[in-house]
Amino acid sequence: MQMLDRDTQPKSVGVVGDGDDVAIIETIEDVFKVAITDEDAESIRTLEDAHSLICSKLPNEENEQTKCLTAMAYYRLNRAMQDHGKAWPSERVEAPEAMRPRAFQQQLEEASGLQLPFLTTSSARVNMLGWSILVTWAAGPILFFDLYAIAVGILVFALNIAIWRYATSIDQRVWIFRGTLADLSRQASEENIGQLVSEGGKWKGADVWAVMTKIISDETGFPAEQMRPAITFID
Protein backbone atom coordinates (compact mmCIF):
# COMPACT_ATOMS: atom_id res chain seq x y z
CA MET A 1 0.00 0.00 0.00
CA GLN A 2 1.38 3.41 -0.91
CA MET A 3 1.89 5.60 2.17
CA LEU A 4 0.68 9.17 2.12
CA ASP A 5 3.14 11.98 2.90
CA ARG A 6 2.45 13.60 6.24
CA ASP A 7 1.53 16.89 4.56
CA THR A 8 -1.00 15.17 2.30
CA GLN A 9 -2.61 12.96 4.91
CA PRO A 10 -6.30 13.79 5.41
CA LYS A 11 -7.08 15.69 8.62
CA SER A 12 -10.79 14.81 8.86
CA VAL A 13 -13.27 12.19 7.68
CA GLY A 14 -15.62 15.01 6.68
CA VAL A 15 -18.28 14.86 9.40
CA VAL A 16 -19.19 18.46 10.24
CA GLY A 17 -22.07 17.97 12.66
CA ASP A 18 -24.84 18.69 10.14
CA GLY A 19 -26.77 15.52 10.98
CA ASP A 20 -24.28 13.01 9.61
CA ASP A 21 -22.75 12.72 13.08
CA VAL A 22 -26.12 11.82 14.59
CA ALA A 23 -26.74 9.11 11.98
CA ILE A 24 -23.27 7.61 12.51
CA ILE A 25 -23.57 7.63 16.29
CA GLU A 26 -27.00 6.00 16.11
CA THR A 27 -25.56 3.26 13.89
CA ILE A 28 -22.65 2.77 16.29
CA GLU A 29 -25.13 2.44 19.17
CA ASP A 30 -27.15 -0.11 17.23
CA VAL A 31 -24.20 -2.22 16.07
CA PHE A 32 -22.27 -2.21 19.35
CA LYS A 33 -25.40 -2.28 21.55
CA VAL A 34 -24.18 0.66 23.63
CA ALA A 35 -25.77 3.95 24.70
CA ILE A 36 -23.95 7.17 23.80
CA THR A 37 -25.27 10.22 25.61
CA ASP A 38 -25.20 13.76 24.26
CA GLU A 39 -22.41 14.48 26.72
CA ASP A 40 -20.46 11.49 25.38
CA ALA A 41 -20.94 12.69 21.81
CA GLU A 42 -19.73 16.18 22.66
CA SER A 43 -16.49 14.70 23.99
CA ILE A 44 -15.68 13.06 20.63
CA ARG A 45 -13.33 14.93 18.35
CA THR A 46 -10.94 12.38 16.87
CA LEU A 47 -11.38 8.78 15.77
CA GLU A 48 -9.30 7.78 18.78
CA ASP A 49 -11.84 9.52 21.04
CA ALA A 50 -14.68 7.58 19.42
CA HIS A 51 -12.80 4.30 19.64
CA SER A 52 -11.94 4.80 23.31
CA LEU A 53 -15.53 5.73 24.12
CA ILE A 54 -16.95 2.61 22.48
CA CYS A 55 -14.40 0.39 24.22
CA SER A 56 -15.30 1.95 27.57
CA LYS A 57 -18.95 1.04 27.01
CA LEU A 58 -18.25 -2.63 26.26
CA PRO A 59 -17.66 -5.35 28.89
CA ASN A 60 -14.07 -5.46 30.08
CA GLU A 61 -12.00 -7.36 27.50
CA GLU A 62 -9.79 -8.63 30.30
CA ASN A 63 -12.61 -10.54 32.01
CA GLU A 64 -13.37 -14.25 31.74
CA GLN A 65 -15.02 -14.05 28.32
CA THR A 66 -13.28 -16.57 26.10
CA LYS A 67 -15.61 -17.05 23.16
CA CYS A 68 -14.25 -15.92 19.80
CA LEU A 69 -16.72 -13.65 18.01
CA THR A 70 -16.16 -15.27 14.62
CA ALA A 71 -16.42 -18.76 16.11
CA MET A 72 -19.72 -17.81 17.76
CA ALA A 73 -21.09 -16.56 14.43
CA TYR A 74 -19.78 -19.64 12.60
CA TYR A 75 -21.44 -22.05 15.03
CA ARG A 76 -24.80 -20.31 14.65
CA LEU A 77 -24.62 -20.04 10.87
CA ASN A 78 -23.42 -23.60 10.44
CA ARG A 79 -26.35 -24.82 12.51
CA ALA A 80 -28.75 -22.58 10.58
CA MET A 81 -27.59 -24.08 7.27
CA GLN A 82 -27.97 -27.73 8.30
CA ASP A 83 -31.30 -27.98 6.46
CA HIS A 84 -29.38 -27.50 3.19
CA GLY A 85 -26.72 -30.13 3.81
CA LYS A 86 -23.36 -30.19 5.55
CA ALA A 87 -21.71 -26.76 5.61
CA TRP A 88 -17.91 -26.53 5.55
CA PRO A 89 -15.84 -23.38 6.29
CA SER A 90 -14.41 -23.34 2.75
CA GLU A 91 -17.78 -23.87 1.09
CA ARG A 92 -19.22 -20.95 -0.87
CA VAL A 93 -22.49 -19.63 0.49
CA GLU A 94 -25.23 -19.06 -2.09
CA ALA A 95 -29.00 -19.02 -1.98
CA PRO A 96 -30.38 -22.49 -2.90
CA GLU A 97 -31.96 -22.63 -6.35
CA ALA A 98 -35.26 -23.64 -4.80
CA MET A 99 -35.38 -20.51 -2.61
CA ARG A 100 -35.60 -16.81 -3.26
CA PRO A 101 -32.59 -14.84 -1.93
CA ARG A 102 -34.72 -12.84 0.50
CA ALA A 103 -36.38 -15.97 1.88
CA PHE A 104 -32.99 -17.64 2.39
CA GLN A 105 -31.61 -14.57 4.14
CA GLN A 106 -34.63 -14.44 6.44
CA GLN A 107 -34.27 -18.14 7.20
CA LEU A 108 -30.62 -17.74 8.15
CA GLU A 109 -31.35 -14.68 10.27
CA GLU A 110 -34.18 -16.37 12.14
CA ALA A 111 -32.26 -19.60 12.72
CA SER A 112 -28.99 -17.94 13.74
CA GLY A 113 -30.36 -14.92 15.58
CA LEU A 114 -27.96 -12.72 13.58
CA GLN A 115 -28.62 -9.79 11.27
CA LEU A 116 -27.27 -10.42 7.75
CA PRO A 117 -28.28 -7.41 5.60
CA PHE A 118 -25.15 -7.73 3.44
CA LEU A 119 -26.37 -10.95 1.81
CA THR A 120 -28.87 -9.33 -0.55
CA THR A 121 -29.83 -5.98 -2.04
CA SER A 122 -32.95 -4.49 -3.60
CA SER A 123 -33.69 -5.46 -7.19
CA ALA A 124 -33.16 -3.02 -10.04
CA ARG A 125 -36.90 -2.42 -10.36
CA VAL A 126 -37.19 -1.26 -6.76
CA ASN A 127 -34.15 0.98 -7.15
CA MET A 128 -35.70 2.53 -10.26
CA LEU A 129 -38.88 3.24 -8.33
CA GLY A 130 -36.82 4.91 -5.64
CA TRP A 131 -35.18 7.16 -8.20
CA SER A 132 -38.56 7.99 -9.75
CA ILE A 133 -39.73 9.22 -6.34
CA LEU A 134 -36.73 11.51 -6.07
CA VAL A 135 -37.29 12.85 -9.59
CA THR A 136 -40.97 13.48 -8.85
CA TRP A 137 -40.10 15.35 -5.68
CA ALA A 138 -37.43 17.44 -7.41
CA ALA A 139 -39.57 18.21 -10.47
CA GLY A 140 -42.71 19.06 -8.50
CA PRO A 141 -41.85 22.69 -7.67
CA ILE A 142 -40.82 23.28 -11.28
CA LEU A 143 -43.84 21.72 -13.02
CA PHE A 144 -46.53 22.70 -10.52
CA PHE A 145 -46.78 26.32 -9.52
CA ASP A 146 -50.37 26.99 -8.46
CA LEU A 147 -52.30 25.50 -5.53
CA TYR A 148 -54.26 22.94 -7.59
CA ALA A 149 -51.17 21.79 -9.45
CA ILE A 150 -49.24 21.44 -6.19
CA ALA A 151 -52.00 19.21 -4.82
CA VAL A 152 -51.75 17.04 -7.93
CA GLY A 153 -47.98 16.83 -7.48
CA ILE A 154 -48.34 15.77 -3.85
CA LEU A 155 -50.88 13.13 -4.89
CA VAL A 156 -48.52 11.72 -7.52
CA PHE A 157 -45.66 11.69 -5.01
CA ALA A 158 -47.81 9.90 -2.41
CA LEU A 159 -48.81 7.34 -5.03
CA ASN A 160 -45.15 6.73 -5.87
CA ILE A 161 -44.37 6.18 -2.20
CA ALA A 162 -47.23 3.67 -1.86
CA ILE A 163 -46.04 1.78 -4.95
CA TRP A 164 -42.45 1.77 -3.68
CA ARG A 165 -43.46 0.41 -0.27
CA TYR A 166 -45.50 -2.32 -1.90
CA ALA A 167 -42.65 -3.17 -4.26
CA THR A 168 -40.15 -3.45 -1.39
CA SER A 169 -42.54 -5.64 0.58
CA ILE A 170 -42.77 -8.22 -2.23
CA ASP A 171 -39.23 -7.78 -3.55
CA GLN A 172 -37.31 -11.07 -3.35
CA ARG A 173 -34.07 -9.09 -3.67
CA VAL A 174 -30.79 -10.05 -5.36
CA TRP A 175 -28.05 -12.19 -3.80
CA ILE A 176 -24.80 -10.19 -3.66
CA PHE A 177 -22.68 -11.99 -1.05
CA ARG A 178 -19.59 -13.59 -2.55
CA GLY A 179 -17.60 -15.76 -0.20
CA THR A 180 -17.31 -18.89 1.89
CA LEU A 181 -18.96 -19.80 5.18
CA ALA A 182 -15.78 -18.65 6.92
CA ASP A 183 -16.05 -15.26 5.17
CA LEU A 184 -19.73 -15.06 6.11
CA SER A 185 -18.89 -15.80 9.74
CA ARG A 186 -16.30 -13.02 9.89
CA GLN A 187 -18.63 -10.49 8.32
CA ALA A 188 -21.54 -11.59 10.50
CA SER A 189 -19.41 -11.23 13.63
CA GLU A 190 -18.65 -7.62 12.64
CA GLU A 191 -22.26 -6.84 11.82
CA ASN A 192 -23.43 -8.29 15.15
CA ILE A 193 -20.46 -7.47 17.38
CA GLY A 194 -22.54 -5.79 20.09
CA GLN A 195 -24.94 -8.70 20.40
CA LEU A 196 -22.17 -11.32 20.45
CA VAL A 197 -20.16 -9.39 23.04
CA SER A 198 -23.23 -9.08 25.26
CA GLU A 199 -23.60 -12.87 25.04
CA GLY A 200 -20.05 -13.56 26.20
CA GLY A 201 -17.93 -12.97 23.12
CA LYS A 202 -14.37 -11.79 23.65
CA TRP A 203 -13.53 -8.59 21.80
CA LYS A 204 -10.30 -6.80 21.01
CA GLY A 205 -9.57 -3.15 20.37
CA ALA A 206 -8.74 -4.04 16.77
CA ASP A 207 -12.21 -5.55 16.35
CA VAL A 208 -13.84 -2.35 17.56
CA TRP A 209 -11.64 -0.21 15.30
CA ALA A 210 -12.42 -2.30 12.21
CA VAL A 211 -16.18 -2.16 12.75
CA MET A 212 -16.22 1.51 13.75
CA THR A 213 -14.21 2.65 10.71
CA LYS A 214 -16.42 0.59 8.40
CA ILE A 215 -19.51 2.30 9.80
CA ILE A 216 -17.96 5.74 9.29
CA SER A 217 -16.76 4.80 5.80
CA ASP A 218 -20.22 3.58 4.77
CA GLU A 219 -21.73 6.88 5.89
CA THR A 220 -19.08 9.32 4.63
CA GLY A 221 -17.34 7.51 1.77
CA PHE A 222 -13.97 8.11 3.47
CA PRO A 223 -11.78 4.98 2.93
CA ALA A 224 -11.55 2.96 6.15
CA GLU A 225 -7.96 1.94 5.37
CA GLN A 226 -6.90 5.61 5.44
CA MET A 227 -8.36 6.29 8.88
CA ARG A 228 -5.89 6.98 11.67
CA PRO A 229 -6.56 7.62 15.39
CA ALA A 230 -5.56 11.29 15.22
CA ILE A 231 -7.87 12.11 12.29
CA THR A 232 -10.76 14.37 13.24
CA PHE A 233 -14.09 12.57 13.44
CA ILE A 234 -16.52 15.43 14.13
CA ASP A 235 -15.39 18.97 13.20
Results as ranks from 00 to 15, higher is better:
G201D: 03
V211W: 00
A71Y: 08
L155F: 15
R165Q: 14
I36G: 03
M3P: 10
L119Q: 03
P96K: 04
A98L: 08
M99H: 07
M3F: 15
G113D: 00
L116H: 01
A206M: 14
E26V: 09
D235G: 05
G153R: 07
S185Y: 08
S217D: 00
R228V: 12
F145P: 04
A224T: 13
G14S: 11
D235L: 02
W164K: 10
K33C: 06
D49C: 01
I193G: 00
A162E: 02
A103F: 00
E219W: 03
S56R: 05
E39Q: 12
H84F: 15
E64Q: 10
S185H: 07
W203K: 00
T136V: 01
D38Q: 12
F157L: 15
S169T: 07
Q2K: 15
R45M: 13
F233A: 10
A167K: 10
V93T: 08
M3H: 15
V34Y: 08
G113A: 00
T27K: 08
V93E: 09
T220A: 08
D21F: 01
V211C: 08
I216F: 02
K67D: 13
L147N: 11
D146S: 15
I231D: 02
N192T: 05
L69T: 04
A50H: 14
A158N: 10
S169C: 06
M72I: 01
S123Y: 02
I28D: 04
M212K: 05
L196V: 06
L119P: 10
R102Q: 13
V211I: 02
M212L: 13
L184E: 05
A87R: 05
A138P: 00
M81A: 09
W137S: 11
W209V: 15
E26K: 14
R6I: 11
L196A: 02
A111R: 13
D20F: 13
E219V: 02
P59Y: 11
D83M: 14
A206T: 15
S198Q: 12
Q106D: 05
S90W: 09
A71P: 02
L58V: 04
R76Q: 09
T220D: 02
E97S: 03
S12H: 05
I54T: 06
G85L: 10
L181W: 07
A210S: 09
Q106G: 00
Y166D: 07
K57S: 11
Q107L: 15
D83V: 05
G194H: 08
Q187K: 03
I142E: 07
M212N: 06
L129I: 01
A188I: 02
F233W: 01
S112T: 09
T70W: 09
S217W: 11
M212Q: 12
H51N: 09
Q195H: 07
F145C: 11
N160R: 15
D5S: 11
L184T: 07
L147E: 15
Q172M: 11
M99Q: 13
P96H: 03
A95P: 11
P59S: 11
L116N: 04
M212T: 14
R173D: 14
Q82E: 12
K67P: 00
D83T: 07
D38F: 08
V135R: 07
L181N: 08
A151F: 13
T136Y: 09
F157N: 03
I231H: 06
P101G: 01
